[in-house]
Design a protein around this nucleic acid. Structure first.
Lengths: 247, 247
DNA sequence: ATTATTAGTTTCATATAATGAAACTCAGTT
DNA sequence: AACTGAGTTTCATTATATGAAACTAATAAT
């Protein structure tokens, strides 16, 4: 599994020796791993260039995961509708061990990002979607998630420790909305709502993101009712389709 | 790995017992498998419903596979251009052990299918893309691929044995183009071109598909030059990006 | 209420397979 | 001709997977 992550992290076909240099395994062990994974179709080996890449089987599994186990497919029509109405970028995210995984994006200009562009990972503590998901997670899960964070200060506005973040999270929980005030990237702000099931269990979040050149936080606030509606609709659908929580 | 395929084949969250019924493994073995996969994030377990689904890690890996190791991302602009010009559905496929894997589709009406819709699998011997890829595969690989086929007669036009198929494949190889004459689905025909590297190694295929209600094979033939250009452009890009062959 | 039935989980002696140091092969160098 | 270094194989050692059976907890039938 670690090996798969390794290969994925190189964003190109990779040589055995490169993997070896970046892995804790001794040579023959790693060798047998990649061989097995290749036989299983999880990796693909290019005999000519002697490089490994992600295998076809993974693409197949990907299809299933994306289609049946991510919010993306059930949420898409709602996100699309919202984007059309607002004309700004919409992000859809789920949580994965304290990291936010963007499972879909709709950019105001380019229409939907496909999986090629979605699938990105961002830290949970400095994005609108991340904070709102954290705020609504069960106490213990939230604690676990935060324990794994290293609180990198991406911008001057980024939370730099747990205490200030904890305060904001409790405010977010009450307000049922989170804002990203240029905490992850300067010039980018967003408003985010949680996607909840009937039992108030958080399964993800939707956000409207925009550039500070165009709008301020106050302008985003105006879209709150629409964003909220969208989040609720997605929540209802997610429950219907039993989309997993990935807490 | 088999277990992952299993879970994927159910198109919904699945219970342990359902997996058990469809797996060759004894209960405790399978139990430990799903437990391990869940811990690794390859599967997700919904404690409330006691169901398993594809995990988040898989979605992440999926992203990498799709983006860096499938033809889809490099081919997309060319396919888009072709679709705009022709106004018909375009399919992009790669081969996987004799099965054709659709890695992208552009439907004339709905714009791009995302991974949610792509990722489907079809047999190689009765689709335009499948036949043209088989025709250009190295002899030994082709043999291996055909050995695994069971030659189901989807329609009256489907090849029912290897001999008639072999004849057609050699014709296709010479003509550098394949036609699907309602061999997989009645009412659907297509014209397909191979995507080749500089060394004439096949990496995939593009096809234009249409309904017999609208057009005949002869109409598709008119688009051959455009299709060919598209395939060549994708081939050049694939080589540049070292997209794996998945032979 | 009591007993069957079934789904999910744990145990443990046994068998099996993974491990990695070292040795080997075969390019492409120096 | 000897050297490097990437990739591959060997094999005795060690750890790990295996699955029959037993157990538990929940639901259904009597």
């Amino acid at each position: 599994m670690q090996v798969l992550d390794q290969v994925a992290s190189f964003k190109r076909p990779v040589r055995f020796s490169e993997l070896l240099a970046n892995s804790p395994f001794p040579k023959p062990t790693l060798y047998r791993f990649v061989q097995t994974l290749t036989n299983q179709g999880m990796l693909a080996f290019d005999a000519e260039r002697q490089t490994y890449s992600m295998g076809l089987r993974l693409v197949r599994l990907a299809h299933a995961a994306w289609r049946h186990s991510s919010l993306a497919s059930v949420a898409r029509p709602f996100i699309e509708a919202l984007a059309e109405k607002i004309g700004e970028s919409i992000h859809l995210a789920q949580i994965d061990n304290g990291h936010v995984l963007f499972v879909d994006k709709y950019r105001a200009t380019d229409k939907f990002d496909t999986l090629a562009q979605a699938g990105k990972i961002a830290p949970g503590y400095c994005t609108g979607v991340g904070k709102v998901i954290l705020a609504f997670m069960p106490e213990c899960a939230q604690k676990r998630a935060l324990d794994e964070q290293s609180f990198v200060a991406y911008t001057p506005n980024t939370h730099r420790d747990r205490t200030t973040l904890a305060t904001e999270l409790s405010i977010i929980r009450k307000a049922r909305v989170a804002y990203d005030r240029e905490e992850h990237e300067l010039g980018i702000i967003s408003i985010a709502c949680p996607i909840l099931t009937g039992q108030e269990q958080v399964v993800g979040a939707v956000s409207i993101a925009t550039s500070t050149n165009r709008y301020g936080i106050d302008d985003l606030k105006k879209h709150w009712p629409d964003l909220c509606d969208t989040a609720n609709s997605i929540g209802a659908q997610a429950e219907l389709w039993q989309v997993p929580t990935w807490g």
